[in-house]
Design a protein around this nucleic acid. Structure first.
Lengths: 245, 245
DNA sequence: GTCACCCTCCCGGTTTTCCGGGATACCGCG
DNA sequence: CGCGGTATCCCGGAAAACCGGGAGGGTGAC
């Protein structure tokens, strides 16, 4: 309720207002970092996540992160056990790192991740998970020696995280191009049809090609994604965002 | 940037701060409505959504809605064609009702929904979709004759919507009993297996039943959900949250 | 001007799923 | 005590999907 809070909130909104206009990811990074620093954090990272990957590096969008931490994190394979990452899959609410529960079966590894983070100057952190219509997409994490934010500042950070993430995803247009896609346009077409329950014949009709063509597309999609049948392929394509509902 | 905006934002944050303490849904409803009215809206609704339901009524959490609109909406079956609802499935970003795209195949029905809403005093609206780790969960819609909000107010409303929704969901403990589910446990099992690419035979092995049983489950699930084949059923079951990935 | 895709079509044979009948048994509700 | 729902199993024929080939034409890249 303090004036400091109000000032921070106003600045957050100012920043959010300004994000739309930015096109250089470094501008985004700098302005976000300024704000992040104002609430006591030393580091932050905005990252796309799940993806067929067990490393964080290739998925990082923007970050100001301790020297050597990322490479270490990836080399050791922390991604798989990081309780913060895991918790992101389950919740849409922002949370403090220490609130992330430890899975009983990977608790030792998880503790090690947190321990090593502490040694790198990140004794505490705050994470805003980002979900879209298909589930967990990524997140923004703030880190420092300690976290001390009023509930009100947390909420401002929550909102900031949502918009910062989309600005980061937009400006670092890593992928997104059809070149980055796995499937061809036609392959996506037939999978969309399949998802709607069409048979190959109906799909062929709908797309104005022969059944054999449709069959070929489905087969190619199967081998490309490495799936076992059409149902499996549709589900995976959905997860990979090759198609939408 | 105006003082009015700042005042609104401050009040939004005050309200959000206060939501945690409320346990009576009517208190939540009243305070939200006060705030909603301040940015020019006459109505609002907070609703849980997809669910095995083609009616909105049973899923409404809190609302201040025009007389007779809801019953009409449900009687006519608008839920299935409402472009605002449909758009909620695809996006996590708040949007104005007029930004919701019309699906080409249901455009006439969709236009009718919007037309009738207008006749009920809701010529414009603003919707904040709510998603959780499993996808679209519900939303909060504000409505009135016109929408005129500055970008900054929209963002405050966005944040407000997120917290109002969880407060509404928490206080109206309208729990969906497992009895409310459409499919039986076994039917869900076989669909999960199918989603992972298993054939009926493999599924039978996995579940320790005969292939015929698996086949029967799939068939029953098909007829229950009203789908055309396994792929279609899996997709729909996913949408209805009967199964998860 | 190859090379690599993509789009399109075709074939024959095999596997899988779908369809629409069954059947038995258990359980809870009224 | 039926009635409805679930869980389990069975059958035979029809339809659809899958498999592994082949093959021609287009386009863009190196």
């Amino acid at each position: 309720m303090s004036d400091a809070d109000d000032a921070f909130i106003r600045q957050s909104f100012d920043l959010i207002d300004g994000l739309d206009g930015l096109s250089d990811p470094l501008d985004v990074q700098k302005t976000i970092f300024d704000l992040v620093a104002r609430c006591g954090f030393s580091y932050f990272a905005i990252t796309r996540l799940p993806q067929p990957s067990d490393r964080l590096g290739p998925n990082l969008l923007l970050s100001v992160w301790p020297e050597g931490w990322l490479t270490h994190y990836d080399r050791v394979g922390h991604y798989r056990y990081d309780p913060v990452v895991r918790h992101c899959f389950r919740t849409t609410e922002p949370f403090s790192w220490n609130e992330a529960p430890l899975d009983p079966d990977t608790a030792p590894q998880a503790r090690r991740v947190m321990e090593e983070a502490r040694e790198h100057g990140m004794g505490a952190g705050y994470c805003v998970p980002i979900h879209d219509a298909h589930g967990f997409q990524g997140g923004i994490s703030l880190a420092g020696e300690r976290v001390e934010m009023t509930p009100r500042v947390r909420r401002a950070v929550h909102l900031l995280g949502l918009y910062a993430w989309s600005a980061a995803a937009r400006t670092t247009s890593r992928r997104r191009k059809p070149g980055g896609r796995l499937l061809s346009a036609r392959e996506r077409d037939v999978l969309s049809c399949a998802a709607q329950g069409r048979t190959q014949e109906e799909t062929a009709d709908f797309l104005g090609v022969s059944v054999e063509t449709v069959s070929t597309y489905l087969r190619n999609a199967r081998t490309k994604i490495g799936t076992r049948n059409t149902t499996h392929t549709v589900i995976e394509a959905l997860r990979l965002r090759e198609i939408t509902l």
